[in-house]
């Protein structure tokens, strides 16, 4: 039984279900959304400012957890590189009839190349499936963090959080 991020280093099912920044599967099935895997109070709020649609709320105390408003979120990914904890992802469940697109923050060299097939790792660092690199993007505002888009089988969309080449 998973005990939680402070014991295992990855979020348990229970923690994921209770995270105010993680949308439900039903919401994710409708449109691309940010998945904010932030469950521990940390004095931090850059994601709130980063969202152009005010979909992320932290509020007066910077110790509050980010709350995602799935109605306002457009899954643009502007919040991904803003998170110092690299804990924000974007999941598009309906990228194709069989595959989903998972966008992850990435800060390692060498970078993957578009079209490349890679091992997709879950939160525990285990290779769970193969995926195809859809995009590798950065801009000056990302401040050297890259956003990697990975096309994976739908059923792994809420598991895949890293890649290995």
């Amino acid at each position: 039984m998973d005990k939680g991020i402070k014991y295992d280093g990855y979020l348990s099912e229970k923690e994921l279900a209770g995270a105010p920044g993680v949308p439900s599967i039903d919401q994710l099935n409708v449109k691309p959304l940010a998945v904010i895997e932030c469950i521990e109070p940390i004095p931090c709020n850059p994601c709130e400012r980063a969202c152009p649609f005010s979909a992320i709320t932290i509020g007066d105390s910077i110790w509050n957890l980010p709350v995602l408003d799935a109605n306002k979120c457009k899954g643009c990914g502007a919040c991904i590189p803003s998170c110092p904890g690299l804990a924000i992802f974007v999941v598009d469940m309906n990228y194709s009839s069989t595959s989903a697109l998972v966008k992850i923050p990435y800060e390692y060299f060498p970078l993957p190349k578009e079209g490349m097939e890679v091992d997709c790792l879950n939160r525990k660092g285990e290779a769970v499936t193969k995926g195809r690199i859809h995009s590798v993007k950065t801009t000056a505002t990302f401040d050297k963090t890259y956003i990697i888009g990975i096309e994976v089988n739908k059923k792994f969309a809420m598991e895949v959080r890293n890649i290995r080449m």
Partner: peptide, 9 residues
Amino acid sequence: GVHAAKIKR
């Protein structure tokens, strides 16, 4: 936890 998660994954 977020720092640990980066290492773990």
